[in-house]
Amino acid sequence: MLSASFLKRNLACIKLGILSRISYPIDFLMGIALLPLCQFAVEAAFWTGLIGVSGSSSLGGFSLAYYLGYFLWQVLPLGGINWRFERAMIAEINSGAVNALLLRPSSFYEYHLGQLLGQKIISILIMAPFMIVIAWAWDLPFHIERLPLALLMGFSYVILLFALHFAVASMAFFLDHVYSLNNTKNMIIWFLSGELLPLDLLPSPLREWVIALPFSSGVYLPAAYLSGRIELGLFLQGFVSLAIGGLFFGLLARWIWKKGLRSYSGTGA
């Protein structure tokens, strides 16, 4: 049951996430605005070049505008991989900074999830207007009325992905370094989410399998839904796979964490 103190604690973690991020204003602005805009610019250049050299005005049945509309989702930091955050969790376990958190009446999970959500909220508040302005200025396919549902899927995906990150970070209790494992996981998710390329370009039946996985809710489903590449039916299937995936990764994270604590030696103290 959600108690008042649980909610207060989580709100405080969200606030901490915002406070600690804006304590470094230059880094904050670069990370929140410049980096995603650059990412979008790189994608725009790549797909413009690719479609240009293909000698056709479309690729996989979609015009350049659809590709730009698709990658506009990258401007919001919901589907992309958050390297900084996972590294922080791993470093806290490796260095023993986790000690302080273990001895307070709150969990490491809610502490980091709250902060992550706080950072996502502030990023979206700042970047959503940029997204709308770019779509309007370049006349990209962008269904603004679909934005609330897409954001809901984006936040649900953040929670699912956090459970997976948490599971991998908890491996740091057993292994001295889990950075390579983490990078490998991120590389796989980069592909499975549709961040690398729209998943509908994959050959069948790989396409159907990959779209059925919960990772497609990170980029492909919301981006394709917002840009009009897919319709509501397929989009809503994403929530089902998110629920199943969230439960699976949540239980996995809990199991690894509990096992990790049993072998933990209280590093650094």
């Binding site: 901490l16 406070l19 600690s20 304590s23 470094y24 023993g96 900074a97 000690n99 302080a100 650094g268 103290a269």
Partner: peptide, 8 residues
């Protein structure tokens, strides 16, 4: 070890 938050 610091137990308070470094950035704030």
């Amino acid at each position: 070890k610091n137990q308070l938050w470094w950035d704030i």
